[in-house]
Design a binder for these strands. Structure first.
Ligand SMILES: Nc1ncnc2c1ncn2[C@@H]1O[C@H](COP(=O)(O)OP(=O)(O)OP(=O)(O)O)[C@@H](O)[C@H]1O
Length: 660
DNA sequence: ATGTCCGATACGGTA
DNA sequence: TATCGGACAT
């Protein structure tokens, strides 16, 4: 395929965006209007105009989105596209930190993930026995939110944990302890990676000029989900690089991570001479699907100014199925999928959207039971699962024997070792200069078996062989892990180790291997899947941004889920929930099937402190004309139909007695 | 008294 | 699947 072919596929507005000569552009467009397509076209166009691919940097939200865009550009340009970079903000920043390590003066450092952070907070929180502090995870969320939004701590505290305001001082103490511990141990958390780079870029024009060679053209996807910290990364490039951002404020669903659609709304004020373009026609869905999506935004007290029009015209009406409980809901979906597959549809044309990773697991078991091939995206990732981390902890220790958190994980595996004992030992190890010294000390500590200690020595010899190292670590831990996870799907967990080994084979050393997947975690299915295998996609809505399928099931559309019970009564959070549902609905191309449970509960609308009405359940006033509604009784395969229009060819039935 | 184990329980989404 | 709180062991 050629570039001309790609440009020919665009409509005039998309064409204008893709080929613009403006320095800075913001493309605003509703769901399915071709934002991603425009980014792909923009990158391809620039390259075809002679821009070296390595000067183009595309910012995406996930590794999947990144590789999809690159693949699509390559489809059109082939080898010519080589060197084009698409990555997440975090990966981009990390590579800058590595590239200019000297300038940042960070020396050796390790990137820690959320679990490590929570563990640190848990230990530090435990030291304060006087106060009833928030949970470790809450402390971390608050800490991270404050940094990502670049707000004052007291404001973030009042918003996040309003009833803990009087604990401000002890909370700050824990956070400061966390920060100094990070510094001592040379850990960088997710936010550090962004903030170091952002701060430095804003201070040093020389660094900006240095970095510029690889991002003379900055293309930002999903702009509505960037936060103020990320904006401060883009800001220094204004006037130097070409900014090309695309987004849709009605799809902003990462508020919990500090996403701020001011990054869209205030674009024009912040960026001199910014060109704002809009795309209006939706190419993805049929009109009936857009009607119900439009309706959802229209009943909002906010004015989203969105009314999607289908380029494709009319199609099938959405369906709404109400089932007795979560099992029947999951089974119904599985059965419906089977029916469609029998009729000749491919599995891969179907996607099931769920609210939470937890809800996804219920559906997963129904799919397994029905023998339907699937991939699950979202929720706990492969390298995040507990048993994998247990094994990796040994490799982490070998790579850096001062990795206290890895020691914690490793030590607490053994019987008779808990948080306190492990923590004492681990901080002792920080004083030692070599792993050998730690091991000598460890031998005096009777609770770790000699075989595990011996394994460390073996690992030291083969550090560069990642896959082999995994094998050694696994052998050493096998027995203990089997004991620890005896009632928890041990056989399934064992299979995961094979996947990890597969993944590891592609990497040169342990540190690089772990680091890559900390920043862009990869799910079981993504490792497992052979390319182009025909499977149903089961996915959390948050991971589903930018994807589409012919047939979409939106599961768990029950009371208490949309909006989620936790956000009830909070105006802004409920609006974000609305957008989550909106994103889900607008993934469907041809058919939209919404399922929910009949919970026999009702959630009342509330008034917030400003006197605004806050909806309790989005689908309570769904006009019957917008979809076919079906109520399934418990264990009932037949259906009671509420709203149903007469099918073609069926005449009004004759009634009465047969007098014959 | 302190640390560990174990079972009950509840579960929002992300890099 | 991670966390919490109480039972149990040291
Ligand atoms: N000009 C066009 N002609 C035909 N099809 C198009 C055109 N533009 C986009 N499409 C198709 O519409 C669908 C949606 O496009 P795309 O994913 O780029 O939209 P999007 O704006 O990124 O959506 P979302 O915001 O929901 O992620 C894709 O299947 C794409 O191929």
């Amino acid at each position: 395929m050629t570039i001309q072919r790609l440009l020919d596929e665009l409509n005039p507005e998309q064409y204008q965006a893709a080929t613009t000569t403006a320095q800075n552009t913001l493309v605003l467009a509703g769901a399915g209007c071709g934002k991603t397509k425009t980014i792909v076209a923009r990158a391809a166009y620039l390259i075809s105009q002679g821009v070296p691919p390595e000067q183009i940097q595309i910012m995406t939200f996930t590794r999947r989105a990144a590789s999809e865009i690159v693949t699509r550009v390559e489809q059109y340009l082939g080898i010519q596209a080589q060197g084009l970079h698409a990555s997440t903000f975090h990966t981009f920043c990390l590579s800058i930190l590595r590239r200019y390590a000297k300038a940042f003066d960070l020396g050796q450092f390790n990137v820690i993930d959320r679990d490590d952070q929570v563990l640190m907070f848990r230990l530090l929180r435990g030291k304060d026995k006087q106060h009833e502090l928030p949970k470790a995870a809450q402390l971390l969320d608050l800490y991270s939110y404050t940094r990502n939004t670049q707000t004052k701590f007291s404001e973030a505290l009042a918003k996040h944990l309003p009833d803990m305001v009087e604990l401000k001082e002890p909370i700050i103490a824990v956070m400061k302890a966390y920060e100094s511990q990070k510094r001592e141990r040379a850990y960088l958390d997710y936010d550090d990676i962004l903030e170091y780079v952002a701060k430095y870029l804003n201070q040093s024009e020389a660094l900006v000029d240095q970095v510029l060679y690889r991002c003379r053209y900055l293309l930002v996807d999903e702009m509505q989900d960037t936060n103020p910290l990320q904006w401060s990364l883009l800001k220094p490039f204004i006037g130097k690089a070409h900014l090309f951002c695309v987004g849709d404020d009605a799809q902003s669903i990462y508020g919990f991570r500090g996403a701020d659609f001011q990054n869209i709304h205030a674009f024009q004020q912040r960026v001199p001479d910014a060109q704002i373009l809009t795309l209006a026609r939706n190419y993805r869905s049929t009109q009936e699907i857009l009607d119900i999506s439009n309706w959802l935004l229209k009943i909002s007290p906010l004015d989203y100014q969105k009314e999607l029009q289908a380029y494709r015209g009319k199609g099938l009406a959405p369906q709404l199925h109400t089932l007795a409980n979560e099992f029947e809901e999951a089974n119904w979906i599985a059965q419906d999928l089977k029916k469609r597959h029998k009729k000749g549809s491919a599995w891969q044309d179907h996607m099931i959207l769920v609210r939470s990773g937890f809800a996804g697991r219920q559906i997963e078991s129904a799919l397994v039971a029905a023998d339907i091939p699937y991939q699950f995206i979202g929720g706990v990732k492969l390298l995040e699962s507990a048993h994998v981390k247990d094994v990796l902890s040994m490799l982490r220790i070998v790579a850096n024997h001062k990795d206290e958190l890895a020691w914690m994980r490793f030590l607490t595996l053994w019987n008779g070792v808990g948080d306190v004992g492990a923590s004492r030992l681990a901080s002792e190890f920080l004083q030692f200069d070599t792993l050998e010294d730690c091991l000598t000390r460890l031998k005096k500590f009777s609770k770790v078996p000699a075989i595990a200690i011996a394994a460390f020595q073996q690992l030291l010899q083969i550090q560069h062989l990642v896959s082999k190292s995994l094998e050694v670590a696994l052998t050493a831990l096998q027995e203990q892990l089997e004991h620890n996870y005896r009632n928890q799907d041990w056989s399934r967990r064992q299979r995961d180790f094979e996947l990890v080994k597969q993944l590891a084979e592609r990497h040169m050393n342990v540190a690089a291997f772990i680091e890559e997947y900390v920043l862009e975690p990869i799910s079981h299915s993504e490792v497992e899947r052979e390319k182009d295998k025909d499977v149903v996609t089961l996915i959390t809505i948050h991971s589903a941004k930018g994807t589409e399928r012919q047939v979409c099931y939106v599961a768990n559309a029950s009371v208490g889920q949309f909006p989620h019970a936790r956000s009830q009564g909070d105006f802004d959070e409920v609006e974000e929930e609305r957008r989550v549902l909106y994103v889900a609905l607008t993934r469907a191309q041809n058919e939209l099937i919404i399922t929910r449970q009949n919970l026999f509960t009702w959630v009342k609308d509330q008034l917030d402190p400003l006197g605004r009405v806050v909806t309790g359940y989005f689908l309570s006033d769904l006009p019957s004309g917008l979809c076919h509604e079906t109520l399934h009784r418990r264990g009932d395969q037949r259906q009671k139909v509420w709203s149903f229009e007469r099918e073609d060819g069926i005449e009004k039935p004759k009634i009465g007695i047969d007098w014959d």
